[in-house]
Design a protein around this nucleic acid. Structure first.
Lengths: 339, 339
DNA sequence: CTGAAAGCGCTTACAG
DNA sequence: CTGAAAGCGCTTACAG
């Protein structure tokens, strides 16, 4: 035998030596290319089995140019909102015989860039990105080099690229209009950091709905900031006190909604509530929680679908797809105003 | 200039040509190896910047042997139980400058194998696997070739390998004993498919707790099967009817618990409930739901920690780590029996 | 039908 | 301090 190689793995060269054929013949058998005698095939196959040969796809793909892998960067793999999105991307990747790298940016622009560039350094064919950064010009050379890139949930910053969004402003308008239709005139809005695109859009939707109904928005009816429970609690309490207390709340995302439910459960007042984003068990709470639901799975499917279209050679200007939201009345949003 | 290459990407060769130096010198500069003149460095750096060169890590790693990537295979990326596990694995991977491939087996043994072997074909350094298959002998050649492998949540089948588990039997014993301590004598168990290791262990824990208390287990007090809501609903209804109706239920996982809560909410009877697995908002339901909680993040951290120990060269016999569960009383498990 | 040579984009081992 | 040659494990392009 030959001396022990660095890795214990047999290569095509080893198989060729053992079968007494050329390297290319092994390659033909492994890839099921035509034009090899039955007899040769079985000799090669015997050598493959004896040595336990398994092709090194990394080496193969280096030679072929494509890596048959894509990267997914999102805020947090563990956030229930994003997991159906990841799963949808994964399902499309599988359907295209593509492997998936994943990474969480933790809402940190540097970490996003680090992950994205690490994926690019592995020469992924494409990227699906839920942006944390506001400036994606660092991606220009990669996109120019042919890395297909689709942004999802939030648009890219500083570059023009494919993006799939929910209709955040429209969904919020509908949710707030729903509260207005149920008699509310003083409605509070508690949102995420306004530098986040979705948060800014939802705030815009709230203001538009109030304006459309000819309602004023008092200064302390709007609170934007981190989703930390303490901040949200303080915002709710502040909106419910003072001379012009709100009778209804619109919560800007699922974490804020859940905190609002907890806070309201401890208070004597009856306050109507509509939340952006659906969440599990919303229907089991009392009152059940009315929400404006996005479809994170559909967001992921649409984004990945667009990505694979690009990888299949569909050219053209960057696309912007906006998915509708759906109001789900369950009880908390239909409570009448209590002065 | 040279003719247009297949890929638009500049390589070290291009950088070397432009800087008027050898290939190895470019490699030295890119890898910040010592022994290059300041002057040469700046010439190379200028060429790198001008061409927008970014090293191809796939090629690099092919030469180096390690791929600095690991694969994670679990049942479903979108299952809230597994997302903190994934996130924990991801965090450790990042700390070890390692990229993470992920894939969902969807509880399908073939799909698990397909994913695992695809990761191995890319020559991942290691694997973290939540098994769907009951036979992992297909992994023997890979493990022999040096792929570090850690199983988590359920043990491997047919091979001896590192594994990190929750104490499923012990946790269930504690949960059932808790119901017994609150006066229950007729307690039902609704579990997942018994071919799933965790489901079998939890059933064992239930039987042991009943036996320890000298209580009989009637035939229709135990129902194992898919977690489909219809099946669970039928099981609950069956256990609550007949001559010996149960006064308490133990639900074998989070999905079953949630369905049980829904079913019980529609019924007039007051039935105590303890569920295996914690879930969000369990404390907001009325009654709040008592659970036996695992720590999926800890499961992931422990498994990934073990994996990177192996990759750092820690040898020795396969390890089996069992993590304790924690009973969290919230109300539903402290309800007294109502005949 | 089969295989030797060159190459994918890097690093290693060596020589100057 | 610098670089030409060989090699990681495959595929491509070509010749026989």
């Amino acid at each position: 035998m030959t001396d022990i190689p660095r890795t214990a793995r047999p290569t095509m060269k080893d198989v060729a030596a053992r079968a007494g054929v050329g390297l290319k013949t092994v390659s033909r058998v492994v890839n099921e290319e035509p034009g090899v005698t039955e007899d040769t095939i079985s000799r090669v196959q015997a050598a493959i089995d004896a040595l336990g040969f398994r092709r090194n796809d990394s080496a193969r793909l280096l030679r072929k140019g494509r890596t048959a892998s894509i990267g997914l960067v999102l805020e947090d793999l563990a956030d229930p909102f994003y997991s159906p999105l990841s799963r949808a991307v994964e399902d499309l990747a599988r359907a295209h015989s593509t492997l998936l790298f994943t990474g969480s940016s933790a809402e940190d622009a540097d970490r996003e860039q680090e992950l994205v560039l690490a994926f690019c350094a592995r020469r992924v064919d494409g990227l699906v990105i839920v942006p944390a950064s506001e400036d994606h010009r660092y991606l220009e050379p990669e996109i120019a080099a042919g890395v297909a890139t689709v942004f999802v949930d939030r648009p890219a910053g500083g570059i023009d690229a494919d993006v799939v969004l929910s209709d955040n402003a429209g969904g919020t308008r509908e949710g707030v209009a729903h509260l207005i239709a149920h008699g509310h005139r003083r409605i509070g809005f508690i949102g995420d950091l306004p530098r986040i695109h979705t948060a800014a859009e939802r705030l815009r939707g709230y203001r538009e709905a109030m304006e459309d109904a000819g309602l004023p928005v008092h200064g302390n009816w709007v609170s934007c900031g981190p989703t930390a429970p303490g901040r949200v609690r303080a915002a709710v309490e502040s909106m419910l006190s003072g001379p012009e207390p709100v009778t209804a709340l619109f919560a800007g995302n699922n974490r804020i909604t859940v905190t609002a439910v907890r806070v309201l459960a401890d208070l004597p007042s009856v306050v109507a509530l509509v939340g952006f984003d659906d969440f599990e068990l919303a229907d089991l709470l009392r009152p059940a929680v009315t929400v404006v639901a996005q479809d994170p799975g559909q967001l992921g499917r649409t984004a990945a679908g667009l990505l694979f279209q690009r990888l299949d050679g569909v050219a053209g200007a960057p696309k912007r797809v906006e998915l509708a939201c759906r109001l789900i009345p369950r009880g908390s949003g239909e409570l009448p105003p209590v002065p």
